[in-house]
Nucleic acid binder design. Structure first.
Lengths: 335, 335
DNA sequence: GTGAAAGCGCTAACAA
DNA sequence: TTGTTAGCGCTTTCAC
C-alpha cells in the first residue's frame, strides 16, 4: 500500500480511503491510485482490514455439496449479501469433513453470522454457537434460542399440489416423503391436511423416502408390485419424483396418461424437456433476501428475539400431471 | 488470548504455542489451556495469524456450482490440503458472479495458490494471475506460462470405452461430444483415434453436445429421426448419457438390448439402479493429491517449470452396454 | 487533502 | 517454560 501511495504520489491514508471508497478523495486521485494499484497488482489485504476494523463483515455459509437446492441458494446469497455490505465465505460439510471443522473454519475467520444450509446440527452445539454468532437455519427450524429460521411454507406448497391434482380429478394420491430431511415433515403435514380437507382421508398413504432418486425408485417399485396403482404421486422433492417417474416409464407406463407425478423444488432436473415435471418453486430470491435481512436485523439493529420466517412458494404446472385414466384395477410388472 | 492465558494461569505466548502445537509446552499446560479456551469460547483469529505469519497457508478454489464432478473434487481437496498444512477457501462462480469477483475474493485473502475448476478463464488474465500466485487448472490445460494442469487422461478413458464396445461386437458407435467443455477435446480425440485403430473410421460420427442432459436428449432425438440407429453411443459425460438414455427409453427402446449407451465420470447419477451406466471413473483421490502436490512443489520447493499431470482413469462396467442386436435397418419414432 | 501516531490479535526472536 | 519487544498491513483519529 505504501508502494501504491508512492507510485501515485499521494499519502497512504488517501489510498486507504479510496479503496474503501470513503467520501473525500477527488476523482483525479482515485484514478491515479487505481492506476498505480493496477500496475503493481495491489489489492487490499482483507486480513489486515478485518483486524483493524475489528469486524469481518463476513457471513459464513455452511453447506453440503449434494443438495442442488442449497447450492442454488448459495448462488443467490452472494449478490444480496454484497448489497448489504457483507462478504460470503463458504465452508463445505462433507462425509469426511464434519460440521465441527467447517464451523471452526468459519469462526476462525470471525464470521459475524452463520447460515446453515445442511440438515445435521445437534441442538446443544447449535445453542452454544448461537451465543457467539448470529445464526440462521435455512430450510428447517429446530427451535433453538437465538436462532432464526428462514424457510418455504411447505405446507402451502403441498396444498397447491394436492389442490391441483384434485382439480384434475385425482383421488388416489400417494405421497413419497422425505423422512427427516429439511421440510419433509411440513410436506407430509401439507399432504395429510389437504387430503383431509378434500374429504380424501381414506386415500391417504405415505411411503418412506429421503429426497433421493433411489428412494423414489424404491417407492415406485413397491407401488408397481401391488394390485392397484394410485393415479397420482406427490414426491418429496424433484429428485425423488424423477426416481418414481423413471421406474414407471421403464415399466411401460406413460406419464401423465397412466400416472401423474409431481415434485418439489423446481430444480434444474424438473425442467428437462423429457421430464417436464409439475412442481413447486421455492422463491429463492425472497429466501436469500430474508436470510440476509434477518442477519442484518440481528447484527445491526440488535434484534434479540427469534424469528421464524416463512416464504410462500408457487405452483409450476408442467406436463407430468393430467386427469387420471381409470386404471385402478390393473396391475403392472416392473421392467 | 490474553484472557485465556490469564484463566489458565500461563503466559500469552504459551497459549500461542499450544494452539499451533509447537513443541515445548508440557501436556499439563496444554490441557489447562484448552480447557480455559473452551470455557471462554476462544479460538485463534485467523486474520491476525495470517497477518503476523506473513503467509496465509490458504489455497483458493474457484468453482462453479453446477458441475457435480467439480464438487466431488472440492470434497476430496479438503483432507489432502489439510494434510499438507493448507486451508481451503472456496469461491463460487455463478452466472451473476463472474470469475473476476471470485478471483478478487481469493486474492484478497492472500491465497497462496488458486485451483481453478471452472472452464472459463481467458488466457491473458490467467497469465497475469500466474505472476502473483501459483495456479493449477483442473480438468483442462490452456498452456499458459506458470500454470500447471492436472487432469484425467481422457484419451485413455475413451479408449477403454471404445475397446469395451468393440469387444462386445459394436461397430456403429457414435459420440455425443462436450463441445468446448473441459476434457471434451481429449474425449473426441480418444474416440476418433480408437475408432481408427479398430479400423472403424467409416463409422466415426460426432454429434454436438455440451455435457448436459438436454444436449444428450437432442442428440438422441436426432438419431431417432434417422433411418439407422447406431448400436452404441458414447456420451461426453454421464449427464449427457442420461439424456440420451431417457429419450431412447421413451421411444420404446430397451437399454442395452436395442442400444448400448456409455457415459463418463462415474457420477452419482450413473450409479442409480435404473440407470446403471457403464462409464469411466476418474481417480478423484489421485487427482486431488496431484493438485495439492503440484502446488506444494511450487510453493515450498520453488519449482518454476510448468507441469501437465495426467492421471489414468478406470473403466466401470455396468449394464448399459451389451452386445448389439442387429437393428441397423429399422427406424423408430419418438414417443 | 496530508502527516503522525496508535493499535487490532497474533507470532517470532531473544534473553532470562 | 516465561517476559519482553517488535511488527505484520491496515484503519482511525486528530491536528494541520
Amino acid at each position: 500500500m505504501t508502494d501504491v501511495a508512492a507510485r501515485a504520489g499521494v499519502s497512504r491514508q488517501l489510498v486507504s480511503m479510496i479503496f474503501r471508497n470513503a467520501p473525500g478523495p477527488s476523482p483525479t486521485s482515485r484514478a491515479r491510485v487505481f492506476a498505480a494499484a493496477h500496475e503493481l497488482g495491489y489489492s487490499p489485504d482483507r486480513a489486515a482490514q478485518m483486524l483493524r476494523r475489528k469486524r469481518s463483515a463476513h457471513l459464513g455459509v455452511l453447506f453440503t455439496l449434494d443438495q442442488p437446492f442449497d447450492l442454488d441458494l448459495v448462488e443467490h446469497l452472494y449478490p444480496v449479501a454484497e448489497a448489504a455490505g457483507y462478504d460470503v465465505v463458504l465452508s463445505a460439510m462433507t462425509p469426511i469433513r464434519q460440521e465441527r471443522q467447517a464451523v471452526e473454519q468459519l469462526i476462525g475467520y470471525r464470521s459475524e453470522a452463520l447460515i446453515l444450509l445442511g440438515p445435521d446440527l445437534d441442538p446443544d452445539r447449535l445453542s452454544a454457537l448461537a451465543k457467539r454468532v448470529a445464526i440462521v437455519e435455512f430450510g428447517r427450524r429446530m427451535v433453538v434460542d437465538g436462532v432464526d429460521a428462514v424457510r418455504t411454507d411447505d405446507v402451502e406448497g403441498v396444498r397447491f399440489l394436492v389442490d391441483h391434482l384434485v382439480e384434475l380429478g385425482h383421488r388416489a394420491i400417494v405421497h413419497v416423503d422425505g423422512g427427516d430431511m429439511p421440510g419433509a415433515e411440513q410436506r407430509r403435514t401439507g399432504y395429510r391436511q389437504n387430503m383431509d380437507r378434500h374429504g380424501l382421508q381414506e386415500w391417504i398413504r405415505v411411503l418412506p423416502g429421503d429426497y433421493t432418486e433411489e428412494s423414489g425408485a424404491s417407492a415406485a417399485r413397491r407401488l408397481l408390485s401391488e394390485d392397484r396403482l394410485p393415479s397420482a404421486i406427490i414426491a418429496g422433492n424433484d429428485r425423488c419424483a424423477v426416481g418414481v417417474m423413471e421406474i414407471m416409464i421403464r415399466a411401460g407406463l406413460k406419464i401423465p396418461q397412466d400416472v401423474s407425478i409431481v415434485g418439489y423444488d423446481d430444480s434444474h432436473i424438473s425442467r428437462l424437456s423429457y421430464v417436464d415435471l409439475t412442481t413447486v418453486r421455492q422463491d429463492i430470491n425472497a429466501l436469500a433476501q430474508q436470510v440476509i435481512d434477518a442477519l442484518v436485523e440481528r447484527l445491526e439493529r440488535r434484534r434479540t428475539s427469534d424469528r421464524d420466517i416463512v416464504v410462500s412458494p408457487q405452483l409450476v404446472v408442467r406436463s407430468s400431471a393430467a386427469p387420471p385414466r381409470m386404471l385402478l384395477n390393473q396391475s403392472f410388472s416392473i421392467a
